[in-house]
């Protein structure tokens, strides 16, 4: 159907672009920008043992990790995953279960969670990635339903009542108070890895193939892009770090149950964040996550809005989709075209 290309459509257009850079990754400015962000996350709460700031940044780090991994599918390959929460929840379950029932050290349990969930999603991916566009999106909702039903009936994981962690498991990390800091630094490290991964993929041949799939899958296949393998890889890669974050998050809370682990709100927020910052960009998604976390913090403290978090998220998403499909970065790129070279 022919529709005039609106300025809004143009913004989406400008933003999902591959970025081919010549130099080795550590000589590029953007690499150091990510490193700077990670450093700020590490240093600022550590100064003066600021626990309140730490908790707020922790949530931002969770959002950044979830959204930038979602972005591999949504922003690069053009596939909406409504069920990214499954990675987070399953990762949480695997980690908590291994630590609690088998006394695995945290790092090993986290690794197992990441690898296990990635492998599982690769298998899911082979099935549902045969479906195109909206049908894939719908079946990701099905994955959530399926996994949730499984966990609720799975007795080793406590069924619908979940798993409590005994405080003893915090001992190897130097007691509960120190464990919270350890978990926080680990989370920031995973956030940093997510950003590096997004950036590395975007500047790689793999990323070019994904972006080609996102724009015209048939044309990409005809040019030789191995579309089924690339999509399954992207889907599986986008599961790894969220699973680890899920592990850390629920280890920190010392409790996991199906309704928290598979709460669709978090997947939804990840989508809102991607669109808010600018799908397909690394900077935008990180910025969007931070802003969303700030906004959410404000809403939760406000009496009127605390019940209407979903309404606000929905309204925000609708406004972005209708009027600013390029998100924040689309706006910044169009105002300051030179930033396109620096901010991926």
């Amino acid at each position: 159907m022919d529709s005039p290309i609106t300025p809004q459509a143009m913004e989406t257009v400008m933003i999902r672009r591959p970025s081919v850079r010549g130099a080795a990754i550590i000589t590029r400015p953007f690499f150091w920008l990510i490193t700077l962000v990670v450093a700020i996350f590490i240093v600022t709460p550590a100064i003066g043992n600021n626990v309140e700031l730490r908790e707020s940044l922790l949530l931002a780090a969770v959002y950044i990790t979830l959204a930038s991994n979602l972005n591999l599918m949504l922003g690069y390959a053009g596939y909406i995953n409504f069920g990214s929460i499954v990675f987070f929840g399953l990762g949480g379950y695997i980690c908590v279960w291994l630590v609690n029932s088998y006394d695995w050290p945290l790092w090993l349990a986290l690794l197992a969670a990441g690898v296990g969930v990635s492998a599982l999603s690769f298998i899911f991916g082979i099935g549902i990635l045969r479906l195109r566009g909206p049908f894939f999106a719908l079946s990701t909702i099905g994955i959530v339903e399926g996994v949730q039903a499984f966990v609720q009936n799975f007795t080793p994981w406590g069924g619908s009542s979940g798993i409590y962690i005994s405080p003893a498991v915090f001992a190897p990390l130097g007691g509960p108070a120190r464990a919270l800091w350890v978990v926080y630094f680990a989370l920031v490290a995973v956030m940093g890895l997510s950003l590096y991964l997004s950036y590395a993929i975007k500047t790689s041949k793999f990323g070019l193939g994904l972006l080609a799939i996102g724009q015209n899958e048939d044309a990409a296949a005809i040019l030789g892009v191995p579309t089924p393998r690339y999509k399954a890889l992207a889907y599986s890669a986008s599961a790894f770090l969220p699973a680890i974050v899920g592990g850390l998050y629920f280890f920190k809370g010392a409790f996991i149950q199906p309704s928290d682990a598979f709460d669709l709100t978090l997947s939804t927020e990840a989508i809102v964040i991607c669109m808010l910052g600018g799908q397909g960009t690394v900077t935008g998604v990180a910025l969007g996550a931070y802003l969303y976390e700030e906004l959410r913090g404000y809403l939760l403290t406000s009496e009127t809005f605390s019940h209407f978090q979903l309404v606000v998220a929905g309204a925000l998403l609708l406004l972005i989709v209708l009027f600013f499909p390029g998100g924040l970065m689309g706006f910044i790129y169009s105002r300051f075209p030179r930033t396109q070279r620096l901010l991926e």
Binding site: I80, F82, P134, A137, T268, I271, M275, L310, V311, A313, G314, A315, L317, L318, V321, L322
Partner: peptide
Amino acid sequence: LLSTFAVNLM
């Protein structure tokens, strides 16, 4: 898909 999803959230 996203726009109807957003309305649904609201």
